[in-house]
Design a protein around this nucleic acid. Structure first.
Lengths: 202, 202
DNA sequence: AAGCATATGAGACATGTGTCTCATGTCAAG
DNA sequence: CTTGACATGAGACACATGTCTCATATGCTT
């Protein structure tokens, strides 16, 4: 049993201030110091560390905090039931969000990637894309066989997130429109393949 | 014109010793300090910094140094001309290489991801996968239309490298066999889609 | 209003990074 | 053998991270 320790209003405010300060500083493109964030939040450095065990944890959470919203909004507005169309809408939203917050997402990715297996505070990697994908696929859910559906979701996760941006930029060095075009083609091809359900034989 | 500064034998030896020391320490799973690497290489810390502008640059290069080889070997041994079969062989080699050197590759990815746009030393991200993919596709090259071929190559780059491992592990939390299965399905589906060449219309 | 729990600040500490200076060593050519 | 170029080592520096201790101040309860 864990002691349920309810955070006081003051604590919530301080936490929020730190995240806001970090976001504000990250928007300037740089990667702020814990000192800088604390100062920006009108808080002392030890206090900042009381709320976030590491600068990475703070920046990580701030980045996520920034880039949340989007997502399912794009789907709520979309009344189609065609999985391709809905996925492309989701991809468009995700794509925008990724490229607009590239600096923050890079920080987050870097800090989550090199964690020791003996990690602790950083709250694991959270997953915005799978719910998004599932929401996009929901109206057509019954058209897929179970195994095909799960494979498709996993495969789409390779295409939809921050990592694909990294590959396009750092590995392939291609520009944004090209990246979008490749992602769209990939999404369409995978959906059609999963609907056909024929590619699972060796 | 750059002054061509030929490195002396001594310099080459020192550089090699540093990389070897870094590899040795990284093999123990931890992420070594510049001090540790220097000590392991029987060299002073300032000297280590004379060869690598940052600890990341050193670890990065050491990791790459480690995980090279593989690749096209897997294809040389494969006499098939079927693009699917050849790609699956390439994927198998790449997959093994990635998961065996996971710790080093994570370090490399982290250091290459959070570089400032104003970066310098880290020699950009090098690309092992595209040549591999092109080698796998070579015998069937003429069966693809140009645009389809390029899209396919880019899409496969999303599936084949370190980043997919990160997604499978950190985002989806799936085990290695599942990851392989998803990747194989994805590869097959994309190749068939590219051969059919029908998915590019909206 | 008084009192107590606790969130905070001030400041020091240990460690790692990256840079600098200056002295010493080593190697090769004269 | 001697000289000079150059790779190296010793040590200090400025700065960032993350953790302490201890004193203060804030906020909530009686």
């Amino acid at each position: 049993m864990k002691k349920a320790k309810v955070p006081s209003n003051q604590e919530l405010r301080t936490r929020k201030d730190l995240l806001a300060a970090a976001s504000r500083l990250m928007k300037q493109g740089r990667v702020p110091t814990m000192d800088e964030v604390a100062k920006e939040a009108l808080v002392s450095r030890p206090t900042a560390y009381r709320y976030f065990h590491s600068i990475d944890a703070l920046l990580n959470e701030a980045a996520v905090d920034e880039a949340v919203l989007i997502s399912t909004q794009a789907l709520d507005a979309n009344t189609s039931t065609d999985p391709e169309e809905r996925l492309l809408a989701a991809e468009a939203a995700m794509h925008r969000s990724c490229y607009e917050n590239e600096a923050q997402l890079r920080v987050m990715l870097a800090s989550s990637v090199n964690r020791d297996p003996s990690s602790k505070d950083v709250p694991a990697r959270q997953n915005r894309r799978l719910p998004l994908i599932e929401a996009a696929l929901a109206p057509a859910r019954s058209r897929f066989k179970m195994a095909d559906y799960q494979r498709l979701c996993a495969a789409l996760c390779l295409v939809l997130g921050t990592e694909s941006m990294i590959v396009f930029r750092d590995v392939l060095g291609v520009d944004e429109p090209t990246a979008r075009e490749v992602k769209n083609w990939t999404i369409r091809t995978l959906v059609r393949g999963a609907l056909a359900g024929t590619a699972s034989e060796t």
